[in-house]
Design a protein around this nucleic acid. Structure first.
Lengths: 196, 196
DNA sequence: ACTGTTTTTATGACTAGGTACTAATTATTA
DNA sequence: TAATAATTAGTACCTAGTCATAAAAACAGT
């Protein structure tokens, strides 16, 4: 038994995966030095783990994040719009990622759930531009990483430029959030006073 | 009699800049074809305009966005924490950027304001881990790109593991948002059986 | 038409960070 | 000890460039 400080292949590959998550922008040479093995070993490890080469990682991160930033904070709607009937109903799905949770507990931060709800509420009302006036919300139970959030929005009343929308979010049929929003539409030139 | 469709160098470079903004992930070969010139011409143009090579553009986008995502959605607190006295008061400042606003109107999307408020509310209570249970909020007036949001959070009551926190957000001393949060601390094991 | 200048294209040598493959060496295990 | 697994070495090739040099083409001015 060589009193070597070499670790097993399995352990090395596990650690490699961790390193890639922490800092995905290291080339094989640097990784080889980090682990005290040859470049070829790192390449073999990457292949076995299905980790692409540095440039592709850059490419993925660039394109992925390009979308991510837009879809996470800049998007018209937070989550994926599944179904929409203007003025009647809207459904969106949000699959939280690690960046949306508290590291300690893996519980999804409330404001992401709120964002899904609010943006869906905005989408479902039949107005060009709208702002949220009032929101009354309740988080019914914690949502964990891996849960799939299904939001359902339903406009319940329109009075002048005020739209009342209820949003329910569930995980596996179990409700985790409810919100009542009053949205104010800003399209003044559009005059649709109607039923209450 | 070259009825040539060639455009001037200047025009080409202007258009090149536009293309780079729209789709920064084209290589020189594709660009050359787009413009009907040789690869070398594109390279000269890039040099004169100071546009780096494709891989570096990937790199910049990847690293830039990496940070952005972390700081915009992954942060412990949305905005910059200015002052904090646990259990008494907290102040944070958020300067919205273009990605936080509606393109049409330059009005800040509600959920960013909510996020600032909620995360500050969480920070100000004296608990290890907390979740939002209920929020009652009102957007008093629209916030525009360029406005500086000053949020002030104040815990008003504690009952068991429930913390009541009021948050006010102002722009230039003028209130734009108010929210009442009931946060549930998890320091003791949380009983999430909540009757409706 | 003949220069002079700018613009464009071509060519060759070199680079990083790889892939894909073969072969050899070193460790571990039956 | 032989068989198997893990590691290292080495080669040819690839992409998407860089840098430098040179030649060709286009556009003026006179």
């Amino acid at each position: 038994m060589a009193g070597n400080n070499r670790i097993s292949k399995k352990d090395r590959q596990e650690k490699l995966k961790d390193v890639m998550k922490e800092d995905p922008f290291k080339n094989d040479e640097e990784l080889a030095k980090d682990f005290g093995v040859s470049i070829q070993t790192i390449r073999l490890d990457r292949m076995e783990l299905g980790i692409p080469e540095l440039r592709e990682r850059f490419r993925n991160a660039a394109e992925g994040n390009y979308d991510k930033v837009r879809s996470m904070v800049g998007a018209e709607i937070v989550g994926e719009l599944i179904d929409l009937t203007l003025g009647e109903q809207g459904i969106s799905i949000l699959e939280p990622n690690e960046e949306m949770v508290f590291k300690k507990t893996n519980i999804v931060r409330g404001h992401h759930i709120f964002s899904q709800a609010e943006s869906l509420a905005m989408a479902v009302i039949d107005a060009d531009v709208a702002l949220t006036g009032v929101a009354n919300i309740k988080y019914l139970r914690p949502v964990y990483l891996g849960d799939k959030l299904v939001a359902k929005a339903e406009p319940v009343r329109v009075r002048g430029n005020k739209h009342f929308v209820h949003v329910k979010i569930s995980v596996k049929q179990r409700q985790v959030f409810r919100g009542k929003f009053i949205l104010v539409s800003l399209s003044m030139d559009m005059d649709d006073e109607d039923s209450e």
